[in-house]
Design a protein around this nucleic acid. Structure first.
Length: 603
RNA sequence: GGGGCUGUAGCUCAGCCGGAUAGAGCGACGGUUUCCUAAACCGUAGGUCGUGGGUUCGAGUCCCGCCAGCCCCGCCA
C-alpha cells in the first residue's frame, strides 16, 4: 500500500498548497514544503489513514486546526483522482483528518498482491538494470578460529542473516562477511601446542577434528600459563607466523580449515549463507593504514604506542579518547584491523569492495569502539560522501534469572547444544501431542517438524524482540504454542495448508472478490500493509517490526478462521475468503523467509 | 571521573517523524468444539510509562537534572 499512500500524500500536498498559497510559498522559498503528515490510522475507527498536519500548521498558517482541516478537505473534494481512492474525509478531534479507502480500491489492491511475488515491495533497482549497484556489506556472526561457537554468537548470526535477507530482497547486492578471529597472539600457543602434540598433522591432511582442537586450545592455554619454555616458544611462533614462516603458516591454515568446517556445519544447520573473510585478510593493509594516518598528522606517539586522540570523545580524566593503532612493540591491534577493513570495504575495486553501506552487527558493548573507529575513518576521509556506516548493536542474552546465560555448571553455552536442546524439546512436545490426538506420523515427519519448530523458535524469539535491549532466553516461552512465538505463526500457516488440502484452490488467474464481514476487511487491510513494514525494517534495521506484523497478521487470520468458514461458505464468499487465505499464506511465508525461518505444511 | 544503553501491567515485551481513551503475550479468572489442525477463539481483571523540571495546541516519545541496573573507557577482540 506504499504506492497508494504516496499518491495520497501528493494529493494532500497539492490540496494544502492550493488552500494556503501564501504560507505555502513562504515555506517553499525556504526550501521545503508544507507537510500534511500522512500516517496510517492509529485505530480502525479512524479509517485507514490520518492526516495530522492541520494541528502543527495552525501556527504557521495562523488559523485554528479544524478550519485548516476543512480547507484541505474542500480542496480534496475537487480532486477527481482523490475521490476515486477515498470515501469522504472526516474531521475528528482537535483537527485530524481521517481518510478511508473505498472498498473497490482495497479489493483491487488485494488482487494486485495475489499476482505479485514481491507483495508490493519495490525493488531498489530494476532487474534488467546494467548499472552495477554497489554492495551493502553486512558484517555479522564473527566467531573465533579454534573455538566453538557459543551463545555470544547467536544474536549477531541470526539478526545479521535476517537483515541481509531483507536487503537482498529489496534488490541490493549484499556481501555477507564473516569477520572471523583468525589472527593474533593466541595462534602462537596453538601452533606450538600443535607442533608438540601432533606434528603429524602438518604432513597429513584432516588429521584432527574440532573436538580435539577445542581441547588443544584449552591445553595450549594451560601450558602457556604454566610453562615458561612453552610461553617463549609461543611468542617466537607468533613472530615466525607474522614473518611468513612456511611451517607456521601451514599449521595456521590447518587450524583455520578445521574450524571453518565446523562453523559451516552450524551455518548449514541454521540455513545461513556467509562468506568468510577473517581479520588476516587485512594484514597487508595494516601498515598502510598507520602510514596514512601519520601522513594526515593524526598520529601521536604516546608511551611508545601510536595513538589517534579524538577530541570530541572524552576518555578518562576528561582528556581526549586515545585509540591505539600501533602498539609499543610495533604490533597492530583490533582498531587497526577494523580501520583497514573500513578502508578496504569502501575503496573501489580492485583494491576494495566499493561498498555504499556498511553494517556491523555486534553487541552493544562495542559501541564505543565503533564510534571511535568510525570517527577516525571519517577524519582520514575513508568514508565516501554518499556512503553509510552503521553499528547495529544488540543486548546480552540472559538466562531466566536475568544474568548472563550460562550452563548449570557455570560454563558458556555452546551454540550447537543450545540448538539441539530446542529441537529436542520441540520433539517432546510434538510426540506428546501426537499421542494425545492418536496421530501416527513417520519418523521423517517427526524429525523434520521438530527441527523446523525448534530452530524457528530460537531464531524468532531473538528476532521478535527489539534488539537493543537485553534478551531473556527461555526455551519454554519460545516453544510455547501461544503468544508471539514461531509455533503460533507456523500454526496459522498449517491451518491454511489444511484448507488447500481439503479442496481449496489457490493460484487462480482471475479472482472475483467480495467482502461483507468485518473479519474479512480487517484481514484484507492488514495484508496491504506488508510492503510498508519491509521498508521500515530496511530503514531502521529492526527485524522485530516484521515479527510484530506477522504476529498481528496471524492473530487476525486466526480470528477470521475461527469465526468464518471458508470451504463451506457460499459463493462469492468462498472464493473471496480463499483469496484471503492464499494471500495470508504468501505473506507469512515470505515474511518468515526474510527472518530466516522455515515453514511447514503440517505440524 | 567520562561515555553508552536500559527503566512501560505480577512476569516477558511492543509502542513508528511528538498526535486522538498507553498495547500485546504469559500468568489469573470466566466462556466457546456436529465445522477447514481448539497448538485456536471470545470476554474480565490488571498502569503515577523510574523520578523532578522544561519545550508546546499536544510528551511514554524531544531537552535538562536526579535515581537504579548493565556495559565500555591505551597497548585483548
Amino acid at each position: 500500500m506504499i504506492k497508494l499512500s504516496k499518491i495520497l500524500k501528493e494529493q494532500l500536498q497539492v490540496a494544502l498548497e492550493n488552500a494556503f498559497p501564501k504560507s505555502s510559498k513562504k515555506i517553499c522559498d525556504s526550501g521545503s514544503r508544507l507537510d500534511p503528515q500522512l500516517v496510517s490510522a492509529s485505530k480502525p475507527e479512524f479509517g485507514d489513514f490520518q492526516v495530522n498536519g492541520a494541528l502543527s500548521l495552525a501556527k504557521i498558517i495562523k488559523q485554528p486546526p479544524r478550519e485548516i482541516a476543512n480547507a484541505i478537505i474542500e480542496e480534496l473534494l475537487k480532486n477527481q483522482d482523490f475521490l476515486k481512492i477515498c470515501k469522504k474525509p472526516e474531521i475528528a478531534g482537535p483537527g485530524f483528518i481521517n481518510l478511508t479507502l473505498k472498498d473497490e480500491i482495497i479489493i483491487q489492491e488485494i488482487k494486485n498482491l495475489l499476482i505479485d511475488d514481491r507483495l508490493g515491495v519495490p525493488l531498489v533497482k530494476e532487474p534488467n538494470s546494467r548499472t552495477k549497484v554497489s554492495p551493502v556489506i553486512v558484517d555479522f556472526s564473527s566467531p573465533n578460529i579454534a573455538k566453538e561457537m557459543h551463545v555470544g554468537h547467536l544474536r549477531s548470526t541470526i539478526i545479521g542473516d535476517s537483515l541481509a535477507r531483507v536487503l537482498e530482497f529489496r534488490g541490493y547486492s549484499v556481501l555477507r562477511l564473516n569477520h572471523v578471529g583468525d589472527w593474533g597472539t593466541q595462534f602462537g600457543m596453538l601452533i606450538t601446542n600443535l607442533k608438540r602434540k601432533a606434528p603429524e598433522v602438518l604432513t597429513k591432511p584432516n588429521a584432527i577434528n574440532i573436538g580435539d582442537l577445542v581441547n588443544f586450545y584449552r591445553e595450549a592455554k594451560k601450558h602457556f600459563d604454566e610453562d615458561k619454555n612453552f610461553k617463549d616458544e609461543s611468542r617466537n611462533e607468533v613472530v615466525k607466523l607474522q614473518n611468513g614462516d612456511q611451517a607456521s603458516l601451514k599449521a595456521w591454515k590447518l587450524l583455520c580449515e578445521q574450524s571453518r568446517r565446523e562453523f559451516k556445519k552450524i551455518y548449514d544447520y541454521l540455513n545461513i549463507k556467509i562468506t568468510e573473510r577473517g581479520e588476516s585478510f587485512y594484514n597487508p593493509y595494516l601498515q598502510e593504514v598507520v602510514d596514512e594516518l601519520d601522513s594526515l598528522d593524526l598520529l601521536v606517539n604516546d608511551q611508545g604506542a601510536k595513538c589517534v586522540f579524538l577530541t570530541d570523545f572524552l576518555g578518562k580524566n576528561g582528556k581526549p579518547l586515545p585509540v591505539i593503532v600501533q602498539k609499543s612493540d610495533g604490533g597492530f591491534n583490533y582498531a587497526t584491523t577494523d580501520l583497514a577493513a573500513i578502508r578496504y570495504r569502501f575503496r573501489t575495486s580492485p583494491h576494495g569492495d566499493g561498498a555504499c553501506r556498511l553494517i556491523y552487527v555486534t553487541d552493544e558493548g562495542q559501541a564505543n569502539h565503533f564510534a571511535g573507529v568510525f570517527r577516525i575513518a571519517k577524519l582520514a576521509n575513508w568514508i565516501p560522501a554518499n556512503a553509510q556506516i552503521e553499528h547495529v548493536p544488540f543486548g546480552l542474552v540472559q538466562g531466566e534469572d536475568g544474568k548472563k546465560l550460562k550452563t548449570r555448571s557455570g560454563e558458556t553455552v555452546k551454540l550447537r547444544d543450545l540448538l539441539d536442546e530446542a529441537v529436542d524439546k520441540a520433539k517432546i512436545d510434538l510426540c506428546n501431542r501426537l499421542k494425545e490426538e492418536c496421530r501416527e506420523e513417520s519418523d521423517e515427519f517427526i524429525e523434520n517438524v521438530s527441527r523446523t519448530v525448534g530452530l524457528a523458535a530460537v531464531k524468532y524469539a531473538d528476532l521478535s524482540q527489539n534488539r537493543i535491549t537485553n534478551y531473556q532466553f527461555s526455551f519454554d516461552r519460545m516453544l510455547s504454542l501461544q503468544g508471539n512465538t514461531a509455533p503460533y505463526l507456523l500454526y496459522a500457516l498449517v491451518r491454511i495448508a489444511g484448507i488447500a488440502r481439503k479442496g481449496g484452490t489457490f493460484g487462480k488467474l482471475e479472482y472475483h472478490i467480495e467482502f461483507n464481514k468485518s473479519q474479512e476487511w480487517e484481514l484484507a487491510k492488514k495484508l496491504l500493509d506488508f510492503d510498508r513494514i519491509i521498508m521500515e525494517v530496511e530503514e531502521e534495521l529492526l527485524p522485530n517490526r516484521l515479527c510484530n506484523y506477522l504476529f498481528e497478521l496471524s492473530q487476525i487470520f486466526n480470528r477470521f478462521y475461527d469465526q468464518l468458514s471458508v470451504l463451506k461458505a457460499n459463493e462469492p464468499s468462498r472464493s473471496s475468503r480463499l483469496a484471503l487465505c492464499e494471500l495470508t499464506a504468501k505473506t507469512l511465508k515470505l515474511g518468515m523467509n526474510l527472518l530466516g525461518v522455515s515453514t511447514l505444511e503440517r505440524m
